[in-house]
């Protein structure tokens, strides 16, 4: 019903009194967003299947809202309004409900972002080990404003890289670190940050030798087990 909602002026624009009047006059009952009729929403099959299979995993359908939003983000690169509407139609909830959920969580993007998502940890442990310099290097290489990247996240002009200063990613052992396309890398130097951006621009796998995966536990090789533990293994 509401495909036609393209208001000339958005409610959040800088509004004059006349704008406000025009905006009110342009609001029609069908512009509201109740639960979309499934038959009126076109959904890519693959997306629909993913959401439906998530819905089956839980005792209550709404539990699938996070998996559904992940599926939307996977499909479109970000949680597009249209994608949210599609998921809402499949789940039988309002798009507003899903948007509310999406905007609560840091990993869901409700505006377009670059192809590769780089989250640079700027929390205590990484900050103590030079995260600011690493973030600056990422930003410089990507050509984005570090302050903006640090506070709200921003993407490079060519659309290759999205950069965001992020709270603790749970990898203080490899501080300073970053999550690039959902894989962890660290400890990073500013130089490696610059290299990573270049590699991402050409869609290459970034700094493979800094990947967390496969890294051994801290504290050196397996010590001789405590006799009590050994006894427990018998």
């Amino acid at each position: 019903m509401s495909d036609g909602w393209v208001p000339e002026i958005k409610p959040t624009d800088d509004l004059s009194a006349a704008d406000r009047r025009r905006l009110v006059e342009s609001m029609r009952p069908e512009d509201a967003e109740p639960v979309p009729e499934l038959s009126e929403v076109d959904i890519p099959d693959e997306l629909r299947e993913r959401i439906e299979s998530a819905m089956q995993k839980y005792p209550e359908i709404r539990s699938a809202s996070l998996p559904a939003l992940w599926a939307v983000q996977r499909h479109y690169g970000w949680c597009t309004p249209e994608g949210i509407r599609q998921a809402a139609a499949v789940m039988g909830v309002t798009p507003g409900y899903l948007e509310s959920v999406a905007t609560f969580y840091d990993l869901f993007h409700t505006s377009p972002v670059g192809r590769h998502r780089v989250l640079v940890c700027h929390n205590l442990a990484c900050w103590l080990r030079g995260a600011e310099d690493v973030l600056d290097a990422f930003c410089e290489a990507a050509g984005v404003d570090p302050d903006e990247a640090d506070h709200i996240g921003t993407s490079s002009e060519d659309g290759a890289v999205y950069l965001r200063g992020f709270e603790c990613l749970g990898a203080c052992d490899i501080a300073p670190m970053a999550s690039i396309d959902e894989h962890y890398y660290g400890p990073l130097t500013p130089e490696e940050a610059r290299t990573a951006v270049e590699q991402l621009r050409s869609d290459a796998r970034p700094i493979p030798d800094k990947a967390l995966a496969g890294r051994e536990t801290a504290g050196g090789p397996e010590p001789e087990p405590d006799p009590r533990v050994k006894e427990g293994e018998a």
Binding site: Y58, E60, I61, R62, S63, A64, S65, L66, P67, L69, W70, S100, V101, F104, Y105, D106, L107, F108, E167, C168
Partner: peptide
């Protein structure tokens, strides 16, 4: 169940809300 980036979900009742598909 994968979360989506919110420290507060580590609080046990917020975790339940998140698992129920709500804001945590």
């Amino acid at each position: 169940h994968r979360g989506a980036g919110a420290y507060i979900c580590g609080e046990e009742t917020a975790l339940l809300d998140a698992l129920e598909g709500k804001r945590g």
